[in-house]
Design a protein around this nucleic acid. Structure first.
Lengths: 330, 330
DNA sequence: CTGAAAGCGCTAACAT
DNA sequence: ATGTTAGCGCTTTCAG
């Protein structure tokens, strides 16, 4: 393998000049630049990036902590991160934590050991078990919630949820059920807050008996629907805290002959690709997943480069999408 | 930042011994091992992995070339890769090529420049524009097709497609349409081959007028359905080369009042999560996405470690899932 | 089992 | 603008 010394020799120059020719071409005379390029081509020289990173103490790498890469929302955020990172000359190391704290620690160790310069965390912050932020590590939280004590990029979950409930109220619904995520999940907390705000605004009392805890997965949506089915006085609308549970609920209702939206309105959250394909298509909230990733990467790279980041909390616009699954109560 | 020299000094040992204590603890006396551990803890020493990789010439990193990370199937394959890589002490660099050859080249350059030890390629091999395999680079193709000239892990697309068509034939269908992917896509080629084999086996002539080219996306499925709708003698079943187009086709048929499966049977391919949620749920083929990723990672890591890999082509079992979208013609 | 010492390939002063 | 040179922090012979 050719080294920079071989190139220098072949070009009749010093290693220092070759190094500069590669990193700051404008600081090398045109003729020598040509010589260097020729030598590189002739020897098929490929710089050893490992040596380069080591020597320069810059890894130009980000690690992305993601609870589950096989979740489409996260995958889209990552896609946005990748775009920005690539353009800035950064690589992205994938940290699929599979919801394990131990794995999360392993990945954070990568920045402690210089393998990466910073972290983008896709798990929403919870005081009880947060490993980040840390003073010695650059990090930004993406798709986070209210009160995240670090740089963060997110939508207004409270506002989005409130808007969704107001949509139902405006249609004439008075008894609006909920299928939440796990109680302690920050997204659940924010979205539930929005729900309560909307009800309060309409002067409707909060009724915990029609707020059912799910876990963001299909089966929890289905079983929640069954519980609604069994109620003597069923809500006329159900607000689900993600699309997957909403789709499940629709199916759960259908099994008892309850039609959506004629008999009951259902709303989702996330705007999964499929939510426009289902029958009926879903009224839902679209998060700008790629944008969230892009912005998070921009901030982190800025931080790494030592550029001041005046804004700590980036709240991006969401999109409220009305489709077929909601209508006025009969 | 503490270096290995600081640790050596604090422990009253040489750097060589400390280095060994870290990499081959069994080759250091227990008492000295303890001294080293104490010194490490006292100084809060974190080895500089960049130096380590540089010096040892091992990056312990894989790059995954993926056409689109925001495609659930790929995301799942990557999840499998990650699991195996983590357990083997490898990191995975994400190479989201967004279908660009230029980007693909950039990522391959990472192994030329020592940043990574090998590549897993999720884009199926096509002779016209393949950048891999290359003699100087370890690579394995995951989710590939027939005749891939490198280590590969895949299912038997031809067989799966054939089985699907035979299922329809057994139900009594004689006129079976197809919505394919792009013509030159290797998966399209393989699956079309299976379709033709099945027809030939049943003594039915291939009729190109009911084979419509799609592009694996929703809209192409929808417009294909419209073309079927307009046919004087519509097929009684349509075989779609992925779930997304199948779901779209079902919707397209529904818009003209054509019910699935009563009026027409529809099949998918991939077993997306949603394909069991749709109404009707989809008859489809499930690829073992995570397993494909795991196996590909195992092979690549074995290759990197210099272990002989006797098997070049790994064909994994798929699952044939019959749901509600297929039935006998009326 | 341990220590001494060389050096991986590159960058970054510093001189010229 | 170019050359010289001193390492970066670690691993890895090689002696002992």
């Amino acid at each position: 393998m050719a080294t920079i010394r071989d190139v220098a020799k072949a070009a009749g120059l010093s290693t220092g000049t070759v190094s500069k020719a590669l990193s700051k071409p404008e600081s090398v005379s045109p003729k020598n630049l040509v010589k260097v390029q020729e030598a590189i081509a002739r020897l098929n020289y490929k710089p050893n990036m490992l040596a380069q990173k080591f020597r320069s103490k810059r890894s130009n790498t980000l690690v992305v902590l993601v609870p589950d890469i096989a979740n489409l929302f996260f995958a889209k955020v990552i896609s946005g991160i990748e775009s920005v990172a690539q353009d800035a000359g950064f690589s992205v190391l994938l940290g699929d934590t599979k919801d394990s704290q131990a794995r999360e620690k392993e990945f954070i160790k990568m920045v402690e050991t210089r393998l990466a310069d910073g972290v983008i965390n896709l798990r929403p912050y919870r005081e009880q078990d947060a490993l980040l932020p840390r003073d010695d590590i650059f990090s930004v939280a993406a798709s986070s919630c209210e009160n995240t004590p670090s740089y963060s990029v997110r939508i207004d979950n409270v506002g989005a949820s409130k808007k969704m409930v107001e949509h139902l109220l405006n249609l004439g619904h008075k008894r609006i059920g909920v299928i939440t995520g796990l109680k302690q999940n920050p997204h659940t907390i924010d979205r539930l807050k929005g729900y309560r705000h909307a009800l309060a605004g309409a002067g409707i009392d909060y009724d915990p008996s029609i707020v059912i805890e799910g876990d963001f997965n299909y089966w929890s949506g289905l079983s929640a629907a069954e519980r609604f089915n069994a109620m003597p006085s069923r809500p006329t609308a159900v607000c689900c805290f993600n699309d997957e549970m909403a789709i499940a609920a629709i199916r759960g209702f259908a099994e008892k002959g309850i039609r959506v939206p004629d008999d009951i309105s259902v709303t989702g959250f996330d705007n999964m690709d499929v939510s426009k394909y289902t029958v009926p298509s879903l009224t839902t909230i679209a998060q700008p997943a790629e944008k969230i990733g892009e912005r998070a990467a921009e901030i982190l790279i800025g931080l790494i480069r030592g550029e001041p980041q005046p804004v700590t909390e980036h709240v991006l616009p969401y999109e409220f999408i009305i489709r077929e699954s909601t209508t006025s109560p009969q």
